[in-house]
């Protein structure tokens, strides 16, 4: 056991709490999701443009949360959390994207009546 004793409230993970950053993160998250809702309700874009628009808005909301709420940065205390997140995000996107792509190319080749319902799908 360590002979060192220190106030846990002086730990960098505690000290990085910032009321201003939390307010900014909250406002950015709510605002970006409100814009995404408006884009959805207006229904004025093609489906592909809509997907790109809401993906960008969602990505910005997640970025705002990572930086302003989680307080991730490249400081000594947060560096490995930031790096691990940056390494997980591609896995997250690829596992969803590749699985979806694989099955949506598989459906037309394996399901005889697929073409009858394809028109109302993606």
């Amino acid at each position: 056991m360590s002979l060192h004793r220190a106030d846990p409230l002086d730990h960098p993970d505690v000290r990085n709490a910032s009321g201003i950053a939390f307010v900014a993160g909250y406002a950015a998250s709510v605002g970006l999701m409100a814009i995404a809702l408006m884009v959805t309700l207006r229904h004025e874009m093609s489906y592909v443009r809509f997907v790109i628009a809401v993906a960008i808005l969602g990505g910005l909301a997640l970025l705002a949360q990572a930086v302003l709420m989680f307080r991730l940065d490249l400081s000594g205390g947060q560096r490995w959390k930031t790096i691990s997140l940056l390494l997980v995000v591609p896995l997250f996107v690829l596992s969803i994207g590749l699985t979806g792509w694989m099955f949506h190319t598989l459906y037309p080749r394996t399901m005889l009546d697929f073409m009858q319902v394809q028109g109302s799908g993606m």
Binding site: I96, V117, S120
Partner: peptide
């Protein structure tokens, strides 16, 4: 959650 979103991406079709 990535696995669940992937399953959703596969099954999110009128078929």
């Amino acid at each position: 959650f990535a696995a669940l979103f992937a399953a959703y991406a596969v099954l999110d079709h009128p078929y």
